[in-house]
Design a protein around this nucleic acid. Structure first.
Lengths: 231, 231
DNA sequence: TTTTCGTCAACTGTTGACAGCCGACATTTT
DNA sequence: AAAATGTCGGCTGTCAACAGTTGACGAAAA
């Protein structure tokens, strides 16, 4: 039988906070009052502080004697995060090429086929979900939980706050799909070097999806009229 | 004037715990009693729990309803950490090549010269310090605090527990010095691709410095009679 | 002797409360 | 009127205590 593990209050609070922040309920820079959050979540300040502390550096920043607030990234921070992502996901693709199974290749192919058949008029959300699924699946093939966890916590979490739908170049979805296919081809051929190179190329091309909110009033949802670019 | 920042008790506890664990005062897998540690540090359990929680995943692991213990890495964990290091430090070297200043090149050259003139009979500790200095300096040139911080917290901390002095191949120090020089040459030439490739080669060669303690009684200090290999 | 069950100490998870500090508002001074 | 200062509410950092659970020890039964 599967051992039931009673999630601690801190764990529950953590997931709820992550959900709220990534959903955009708190703007970057917004103060997070401990007593207020504790009251809303129905728990004490102890577990809440533990949860907030675990999110420090990824979704939350902490100023001594002042408190927690939603993280605010500069243009340089964002560039650093994308560089980190390139290094880690590139390595994950390399490892995946060495360890992937035929079943996993088939699963990746299926994912790509699903997106291909999705009508282009659909909203970007579903496609984004599938895209995240692609990257997560590649990481799973790498058999390196540590890299996957670091990517999730330290890279994806903060990046989600600065992701916008618009894309700077036309034909973004088609290009992304093409790049994904190139990665899968390399993975299937067990070409470690090729998989890493292709994944990194793809990530550099997809970097335009992320842009720091301008500090002078911009809401970050820029170019919403443009074609959706999928990472 | 420099603003005096009264480090919180949690921060102080964190640094002390890191120091104690990396110094080898606690074996991997050793239980860390909250009340005992709090008593030794002269603080309450609250800040202590915060410090331990911040170290979870890097130096400490946590089992619900049981408590904290010093992390224990499997052979696979270790390989994953080294892969992560290769990806991140490779990217750091690439960024450093694009952003390094002549002063920083000179500082790196000086570091290498210091090591070269150090008598080979000296104990490995000083050389190790200088070597860490080399890698840290390269990361500093990358102007990406996030990558450096992730390396420090999530990679170097756990790796320090499984570092041993011995080296599997002869002439380790000379080879490492040669590899370091190749990295600096590429950095000076602003050759981003070359810097990343050389750094990754070096890290793969230096991976033999880390080895999981065997679960059946090995003390981890293997091959102490062999020549010291510097990363 | 081996297995099973009951008891208990010790520990963790959580809570509520206290003390110190920070920022804001009102007041006073120039 | 503008700047400096005193006061106060609110918040964070920390602590001690309570409740629930775990694991082990010892006793009883097969």
């Amino acid at each position: 039988m599967a051992p039931i593990q009673a999630a601690s209050l801190a764990d529950g609070a953590l997931s709820k906070i992550v959900e709220a922040i990534t959903a955009g309920e708190f703007e970057p820079g917004a103060r997070l009052s401990e007593v207020e959050l504790a009251r809303q979540l129905g728990i004490s300040r102890g577990p809440l502080r533990e949860a907030l502390g675990r999110l420090e550096g990824s979704l939350v920043e902490h100023t001594p004697r002042v408190g927690f607030s939603v993280i605010r990234l500069t243009e340089e921070d964002l560039a650093g995060l994308l560089a980190m992502r390139e290094g880690l996901e590139g390595m994950a693709a390399r490892l995946a090429a060495e360890r992937i199974t035929p079943d996993e290749v088939a699963a990746l192919r299926e994912l790509l086929a699903e997106r291909d058949t999705t009508s282009p008029g659909r909203d970007g959300y579903l496609r984004r979900e599938m895209d995240d699924g692609f990257h997560l699946l590649v990481q799973q093939c790498a058999r390196c939980p540590r890299i996957a966890e670091t990517l999730r916590q330290d890279v994806y979490f903060p990046l989600q706050l600065y992701r916008f739908n618009g894309n700077a170049r036309r034909g973004g979805t088609a290009a992304a799909l093409q790049e994904h296919r190139a990665v899968v081809d390399a993975l299937e051929a067990r070409d470690a070097e090729g998989a890493e190179v292709r994944m990194r190329e793809h990530l550099r091309n997809a970097a335009v999806c992320y842009q720091a909110r301008s500090s002078h009033g911009g809401n970050g949802r820029l170019h919403t009229h443009m074609e959706t670019r999928v990472t």
